[in-house]
Design a binder for these strands. Structure first.
Lengths: 346, 346
DNA sequence: TGTCAACACGAAAACGTTTTCGTAAAAACA
DNA sequence: TGTTTTTACGAAAACGTTTTCGTGTTGACA
């Protein structure tokens, strides 16, 4: 087992100073060609690589990006990570992930763990609990310490930083309009409670689409699911809530759901009730994941372009990191959504 | 913007030495209670946290685990990451991820990036390309430099290190036996080419199950899909290959697939041919992801317990990291698979 | 009053780099 | 030969910690 070799060891071995070795390796003209070659050959032989930690300490840069997301077993978030990873690596950065598990405390702890010099900046999406409690002091503190943050998807106005979002309102309005223009007369929405910002916006898009079509909203057609429990029981209660929705509104002929899962479960319930998709009832979901693609029938859905969001977020962050001198100016990038038409709509 | 504060600054401010501050913060009895309180109050006021990088350099430990996986937009791998993250965090470690994208080069580069002091050890699953080329020098080098590696799922005998795997053979044998005991007479398998070790083992399990039931294998019933292209075209060619399988074997009444996707596509093809699931034909997949749970009909599947694999891998690695003195001894942990019965089987 | 512990603190080294500055020796020049 | 300029290298500081060792001051005791 040959341990990692250091400058000091090379220096001792070759009977020169550490400075000389360092300079020789970086091809400084200060060092004679003779010595340079000797040192480089030796370094190559022993597979020398500069110690990253020492470099980080010296440069006060880690070349590492901290990513905090609420959940990783989730198609959208993993796509975002892939996007972040891709541009980060291309630009010489590493990515270190923390999961908040939708918990405020874990979000805070994770950020503290990373903020102490381990990373140069954050990319994150806010946990549901944080959104609910509306306690954003940890973000503010981090930013005030000079560490840049880029938020994506679940963002919040109170914090001033770069943001990457989609136009949730427009995306859902488009989707609902599609249902209406396809002839649906009784369009229901399955959404989340309002404290999830994206849920709220998507609900609003639904309402605006109805208005455009001169239809008045019917509160019976709006199902706001409590999204706090993500466990198995949740699935069951979700299903029965949706059943209730159908029971109360026999004429539903279109459903817009604010995520894949709600849509899939919705289709399941509809099928159980003997409705044919898309002939009797049409469905559109949000977030283009595996479920949408491989459901039967495949689900028409609003794609959020998660990977693109990740790429953009990483670009924004790195840009900020590498031009710290620039005056503070935050941008909010809006990624276009796209309606991917499949077989759950006509 | 108040920048992060250091020991030196506290020392200057309070007019004591750096050593005193350091000791006071760690509650050393060397320092008078007076001074201790003063320093601690000041530190708290300015929200002092020791710089991680400096600690890493000093301790020659980063308390960080490097994870290299082929792909993150993948239910199994994200479950594993979640498992790793969970135990790592609990034990005070961070997790830094690298994606190989199934490419040999990216795997090597990613490992080099991390191996230079950024992390204490690796948890990884080998990329397909590496498996194909059978070039494992980067693993060997890393290990010989004293950096421990734990491999999971896609492992290889040539490398001596801790491993966490499932009993692919047993898992698939069980699954196929289930089909046979359910009365299937013509069980097909949709698997990968043999260079993917898990694919090979699962195929072998299929064969052994047949043998147990005194049935002779029929090479027409074995479809080995070339898994190299994961793109959209792949999906299409996959589907037509499976159609061909059904066309050549009209009597197929059971299908075992080595992953979710193959099973889902298989069901789709079967349905197109007018077969009823599970009455006319039964399906079992491998890997318990979202697709299995929410497909119609829901898919009976062999669960790999990805999260548990991640947890175990992290435990093994941390154990090794924290008892480096121990004599080298590698273990291979086998995680039990579980057949989750749903509606695609009788 | 002189000696010795106990106490409270500081100096310095170490982790592995990079970089600035200083300098001896060699080369160039007058 | 005497002076200046290169050339080629080394010493040391810095990044932020922790820790070992040394030391001045105080109080107790004979």
């Amino acid at each position: 087992m040959k341990k990692k070799i250091t400058l000091k060891q090379i220096a001792r071995e070759l009977d020169v100073s550490i400075s000389t070795v360092s300079k020789a390796l970086r091809n400084s003209i200060e060092i004679s060609e003779d010595t340079r070659e000797k040192v480089q050959a030796f370094a190559k032989l022993y597979n020398y690589r500069p110690n990253n930690i020492a470099l980080s300490l010296k440069n006060r840069k880690t070349k590492t990006i901290g990513v905090i997301i609420p959940e990783i077993v989730h198609h959208f978030f993993s796509k975002v990570i892939r996007g972040i990873e891709q541009v980060a690596n291309k630009r010489g950065y590493n990515v270190i992930v923390g999961l908040s598990n939708e918990s405020f405390d874990k979000e805070v702890i994770n950020m503290q763990m990373l903020a102490n010099g381990s990373i140069d900046g954050f990319i994150l999406s806010i946990s549901k609990e944080t959104l609910l409690q509306q306690d954003y002091h940890h973000f503010k503190e981090t930013i005030s310490q000079g560490m840049p943050i880029v938020m994506f998807d679940r963002v919040v106005n109170e914090i001033e930083c770069d943001k990457v979002i989609i136009d949730d309102l427009k995306g859902s309005k488009n989707a609902v309009s599609k249902l209406l223009s396809n002839g649906c007369k009784h369009v229901a929405i399955i959404t989340t409670k309002d404290y999830v910002s994206v849920g709220k916006l998507r609900t609003q898009g639904y309402l605006e689409a109805l208005e455009d079509y001169k239809m008045s909203p019917n509160s019976n057609l709006i199902l706001k699911v409590d999204d706090e429990l993500v466990s198995e029981d949740h699935l069951i209660s979700l299903e029965s809530e949706i059943e209730q929705l159908f029971l109360n509104n026999k004429k539903i002929d279109g459903v817009f759901a604010v995520n894949e899962l709600y849509a899939i479960i919705g289709m399941k319930v509809a099928r159980k009730r003997g409705l044919r998709i898309p002939d009797d009832i049409q469905f559109i979901g949000f977030t283009d994941g595996v479920l949408s693609k491989h459901a039967t029938p495949s689900l028409t859905t609003v794609s959020q372009h998660g990977q693109e969001m990740g790429e953009k977020a990483a670009e924004l962050l790195i840009e900020k990191l590498e031009h710290e001198d620039q005056e503070e100016q935050y941008q909010t990038v809006v990624i276009e959504t796209e309606l991917i038409e499949r077989n759950s709509t006509k």
